[in-house]
Amino acid sequence: MSISPAPLIVIGGGQSGLAAANAAVAAGLRPTVLHAGAEPVGSWPGYYDSLTLFSPARYSALPGTTVGGGDPDRYPTRDEVVDYLRRYATTIDAEIRTGVRVTAVRPRPGGGYLVHTDTGDELAAAGIVAASGSFGNPYVPLLAGRSNYAGELTHVAHYRRPEPYVGKRIVVVGAGNSAVQVAHELAHHGTVTLAARAPIQFVPQRIRGRDLHYWLQVTGGDRMPRWLLTRLVRHASVLDTGVYRDALARGLLTRREMFTAFTPDGVIWPDGASEPVDAVIFATGYRPDLGYLAPLETLRQGMPAHAGGLSTTHPGLAYLGLEFQRTFSSNTLRGVGRDAAHVIAALARFVSAGHWRWRR
């Protein structure tokens, strides 16, 4: 066990953690990034093979860089993003430790925090940025009969490619981008039904010849404050060039109201009809992966208490990469940099004031 004081520890080495480290260095802090994965590219290698960003390359980069590699209006692939983050990490003058999983964060007597890792280390910090994302905590709703279902039940976090589903009857649960993209891919290999509690809300990918994200940028929609956003956005929406809407209209995909229960070999639909199903894939989102903060007792049903990413319960604790943390784009490549600048500025003031220093 070792104790090594550092002004700032960033937990997570994905896009949010790297944005935090970059902003911290610019603010004159000495960040140490702790990342559980083998390299600082976040959860991107774990996404399904065919994933492409829903925003063009020109709108999909962290501060001070571009994704590069060709047409700025293309939609980068998963592997392009991995390569981009790998390069970005090398530009940050900070210590980035990979293969280190944080197991607990505790208050340190006299001020600051102690960060415990699965390697047995204990690190002291003036401030903490929890930037571990949510991919490690996929959400699957508890439905009647789930434990008795004999088919394949998984979350889209564990889906990779369509080949294992050839000829199968599949239900994809969800009404967001990932649900529709995966369902559309699978529909060319099996029989697919989209199950959702609300109708699919399509949003045009291109408006008057330009990608939606151009209009979000010029109108300021990407920076819409959280309080207003939550009033306007009622449920998930799907960016579409017309391909997905057409697939539903042609019957390649079928959409039904969410089933009410599982049977041993399938599901029960709201009209009472039972249907055999080989596989159910939940694209039902994620919850913040913040279990290591449990000792601080700052989580409420797994969700952090914060205002704009700054903890309302623990001075010197901040968050990055939360959905709708401050704006519509808070947990995206194009938006997390703004949030990083916001929370790091506050942490820099906190550290420079010396409020965290422990008494001898």
Rank of each mutant, 00 (worst) to 15 (best):
G291R: 09
Q15K: 10
Q325E: 08
L153Q: 00
N331I: 06
A261I: 12
T254P: 00
A57N: 10
F259S: 06
G68N: 04
R334I: 04
G316L: 06
A187M: 05
V218I: 11
A6N: 09
E323N: 14
S178H: 03
E80A: 11
R206C: 00
Q325V: 14
H213S: 12
G174Q: 05
A236N: 08
P56F: 13
G110F: 15
Q181A: 10
E95K: 14
Y244I: 01
Q181R: 09
A279W: 02
W358P: 15
T241H: 01
G335S: 04
A183C: 01
E257T: 11
G174F: 01
G28V: 09
H314Q: 04
W227R: 13
A247S: 08
L85Q: 10
P162V: 00
W269F: 06
P76N: 03
T103W: 13
G99T: 14
A305N: 12
A24C: 04
V166Y: 10
D271Q: 05
P76D: 04
A61I: 02
V171I: 13
P7Q: 12
Q201C: 03
D79P: 12
A345Q: 00
D271E: 14
A175T: 10
S43H: 14
A318Y: 09
V115W: 02
W356H: 15
G110E: 13
T77H: 04
V82A: 02
I207V: 11
L114C: 14
Y59G: 00
P264N: 04
S147N: 15
P288D: 03
K168E: 00
Q325S: 02
S134A: 07
P225Q: 09
P7Y: 04
D222Q: 15
